[in-house]
């Protein structure tokens, strides 16, 4: 065997078998670890704190005490409701505000359409830290102002929803306008021939056709808002109005006194399970949508 042939065999061995094989094993290991960690978290939520502490990896009887404590004592029932409320209302607001704008910006040939889109895109580069202190002070000022002068009451969750909608606009407008642009112009021409005005064309023709795109941005925004912690931590002062991530953080801070690990994992599960279910339902769409949004 010549030296050259030997070299080729060595190269084949590493380049075709050894390295790719190791990488495949590594990827499977990471994938397996993720699935097992998730399964372990769910399992731990139905075990007693004592059992969890003495044999963390064991499997024993079903104990729903953790859920009872998280649900009632730590009020995860209320926090779940808060989260659903804040996320739901924010999503509604985002869609109502962003969809018509995205449609017009994508379809209009007005000269201001391009610069307006750029103006929205600029928000994508702004880190949330830049608005953290302003939101913190504005939220408490608005709350003070409304209580003293206008309504006599205020709910920080309203401020949170307004901020959630405003912060989601750059991403949503950008992705949706890309989607509207990909639709055929014949749709509007046909609608115009049938005598439909702009509002009718938008509402009865374009919105139904754009439903896949609308679903994608809704799901992506839902994931982001559901897991959002930083804004809640600076804007919502009453723990009874926290969303789930803030509630879990608070619950986990009490662990050094209570050691109620069963309850903690029940809390983790209540926070995580809806997102996992969403991922099972439309994981492909989430992955495609996120990468699409990133490359815009």
């Amino acid at each position: 065997m010549t030296a050259k042939a030997q070299l080729r065999t060595v190269r084949r061995f590493f380049g075709d078998l050894a390295v790719p094989g190791t990488v495949k094993a590594l990827l499977w290991a990471v994938a397996g670890f993720n699935v097992l960690l998730l399964a372990w978290t769910f399992l731990s939520s139905v075990r007693t704190s004592r059992a969890l502490w003495t044999s963390p990896l064991g499997v024993d009887g079903l104990d729903l005490g953790g859920y009872a404590r998280a649900w009632h004592a730590a009020d995860f029932a209320g926090m779940l409701l808060n989260t659903v409320l804040v996320v739901g209302v924010s999503l509604l607001g985002i869609l109502l505000v962003a969809t018509p704008a995205a449609y017009m910006l994508a379809r209009s040939s007005r000269r201001s359409a391009g610069p307006t889109l750029t103006y929205f895109a600029a928000g994508l580069a702004l880190p949330v830290q830049a608005v953290l202190i302003p939101y913190q002070t504005l939220a408490s000022s608005v709350s003070q102002f409304m209580v003293d002068w206008v309504t006599g009451w205020w709910d920080d969750r309203i401020s949170l929803v307004v901020v959630d909608v405003a912060m989601s606009l750059p991403f949503t407008v950008f992705v949706l306008s890309g989607y509207f642009r990909s639709l055929p112009a014949e749709l509007e021409e046909a609608a115009a021939l049938d005598g439909a005005g702009p509002v009718r064309t938008f509402w009865t023709v374009m919105v139904p056709v754009a439903r896949p795109g609308l679903t994608t941005v809704t799901v992506l925004n839902a994931i982001g808002l559901w897991n959002e912690f930083l804004l809640v931590s600076v804007m919502v002062h009453d723990p009874a109005k926290f969303t789930l991530p803030a509630a879990l953080n608070q619950l986990s801070s009490t662990m050094q006194y209570t050691s109620d690990w069963g309850g903690l994992f029940a809390g983790v599960t209540i926070l995580v399970a809806p997102m996992v279910a969403l991922f099972f339902w439309c994981g492909r769409r989430i992955m495609d949508g996120m990468t699409l949004g990133a490359t815009k």
Binding site: A101, Y119, Y135, M167, L169
Partner: peptide, 21 residues
């Protein structure tokens, strides 16, 4: 009518606060 809700909310809720910061 279509674009202004977004065009107005975005600076009031996001860009303005960042300048305030």
């Amino acid at each position: 009518l279509f674009t202004w809700p977004a065009v107005l909310l975005y600076p009031v809720g996001f860009l303005g606060p960042s300048l305030y910061g």
